[in-house]
Simulated scan of single mutants.
Amino acid sequence: MLGFKHGRKIALAPLLARLIAQRLSMVKADWVIVPVPLHRWRLWRRGFNQSALLGRELAKATGATLLVDGLVRSKPTPMLGGMGRAARMRALSGAITVNPRQAGSLHGKSVLLVDDVLTSGSTSDACVKALKRAGAGRVVVGCFARVLDEALDVV
């Protein structure tokens, strides 16, 4: 995952998305796929949003609509690696909102929220809350990797 996210191995996106899609048989063409957003400065520095790359491939596999700008990270957040759940929640407070131009596309829809790694769940929680406030129906989180709680206790 580190090679994909930080090592610019973006060619891994189709393989990783296929592996995610195998667990998401409920996602159909009437769903909307929304990647976890990066703040514009981080996107500019990194050059890509790894969740958006996964979302693009998942949209191809499922026929669902990709809303790459469905969510916006409106304030920069520090790198969350190494932070505990409470610190992550504080850092994300008010950082993620629904893009007002896409709110109508989310209302009443089943949404697949795509992330690369689910660590504490704080980022997903912030995204799901924003999607639900915008009227999204069902929200399912799809990710490639999950950090076990035992590993978080070490941090």
Rank of each mutant, 00 (worst) to 15 (best):
L71N: 11
Q50G: 08
V154W: 05
A130W: 13
V114L: 04
V117S: 14
H39P: 04
I20C: 00
P37R: 07
D149C: 01
G55V: 06
K132N: 08
G82V: 01
V155A: 11
R73D: 01
G94C: 04
A151N: 12
M89A: 14
A103S: 15
G70E: 05
M26H: 13
T62N: 03
P35C: 14
A145D: 04
R18C: 11
W44M: 06
L66K: 03
L148D: 14
N99I: 11
V72F: 06
R46I: 00
H6A: 06
A126L: 03
A126R: 00
D153H: 11
N99M: 11
M1E: 08
P14F: 13
L58M: 11
F48P: 04
L12W: 09
A126D: 13
G7T: 00
S51R: 01
L67Q: 08
S105K: 14
H107C: 11
L66W: 01
K132A: 05
A52I: 03
V98C: 09
G55K: 00
P100A: 13
V68F: 07
M79R: 14
L15T: 12
I96Q: 04
D115F: 03
L118S: 14
L92T: 14
L16D: 01
R73Y: 13
V128K: 02
I96V: 15
K109C: 08
G104Q: 05
M79F: 10
S93H: 14
M26G: 11
N99D: 09
